[in-house]
């Protein structure tokens, strides 16, 4: 990994097209390790596209062309020897709508492990411990310890979203991508998920796309402002909001468009 400051993600001249439409233009960015980085910008500016480049899930949506480099932990993930399943194991993703799988809470947490492990059945004591650890990490254990067999899709939205985060943890990802993780939640749910994110800093590099500038300010250490596929400004969150260097950034955070 790099020298003075550690970066977990570095892109170099990243361009991306959906068919003929260029969604990302010469994106070069360094995401610091173990911190929370916010991605802000108006709808359609490429935030989500950029996020999805980092675990290459864009490619599932067909007709996508990418050029440039994306290095995660020093490895270009567009190299030929990169296994997509291994990549996605290390780079987890949380979606806008909580998407727990239609199986029990218990099995949701183990799903990732089961997908990646050779031996099909693990010992019950072992899986119990994994589930408890993951749920404790997202502050769900006390709420759900008696409901482990409950279908995850019947939980409250807030619990579902936390479960979606917990589901990533047993795989020990290095990076967690969050695509507007709170936009389906009420303010209380948003608060607890933000609290959880702050709790996870240090252990995981978190990249969060958000439309909510107050949220970006509350949770992120660094912030990236994007506009029509380009990065306009990338700075420490405080600096970006207090003394934006670019007038477009200033206009956006003051709410003149977006």
């Amino acid at each position: 990994m790099s020298t003075d400051k550690n970066y977990s993600i570095e892109t170099n001249q990243l361009n991306l097209w959906y068919g003929d439409f260029q969604a990302l233009i010469n994106v070069s960015v360094k995401i610091p390790d173990g911190l929370i980085t916010g991605l802000i910008g108006p709808s359609g500016c490429g935030k989500t596209t950029l996020l999805r480049c980092f675990n290459r899930v864009n490619e599932r949506y067909g007709n996508v062309t990418t050029t440039g480099e994306v290095e995660i932990l020093g490895k270009n993930i567009y190299d030929a020897d990169v296994s997509l399943t291994e990549l996605r194991k290390n780079v987890g993703m949380v979606f806008q709508r909580p998407n727990p799988l239609p199986i029990s809470v218990y099995e949701n947490i183990l799903f990732g492990l089961r997908v990646h492990s050779e031996q099909r059945i693990r010992k019950k004591s072992e899986t119990d411990e994994i589930v408890e650890t993951a749920l404790r990490e997202v502050f769900l254990w006390d709420d759900l310890k008696d409901q482990l067999k409950v279908k995850a899709t019947t939980l409250q939205l807030e619990q579902q979203q936390k479960l979606c985060i917990a589901r990533l943890l047993p795989l020990k990802p290095r990076v967690i991508l969050m695509d507007e993780p709170c936009s389906a939640l009420d303010s209380k749910g948003t608060g607890t998920v933000e609290e959880l994110m702050l709790e996870l800093t240090g252990q995981y590099t978190i990249l969060i796309v958000t439309h909510n500038m107050a949220q970006a300010r509350r949770v992120s250490d660094e912030c990236i402002f994007m506009l029509i596929g380009e990065i306009i400004e990338h700075n420490r969150t405080e600096d970006l909001f207090l003394t934006p260097q670019n007038t477009k950034t200033a206009d956006y955070i003051e709410g003149r468009y977006g």
Binding site: K89, N99, P102
Partner: peptide
């Protein structure tokens, strides 16, 4: 589609996704 996305993003292959989630449902 959200179920498939959830699976793919944990690194499940298409077959694991089909077998584990799509077919049962």
């Amino acid at each position: 589609m959200a179920f498939r996305e959830a699976c793919w993003n944990t690194g499940a292959t298409r077959w694991q996704t089909i077998r584990g989630i799509v077919l049962p449902n």
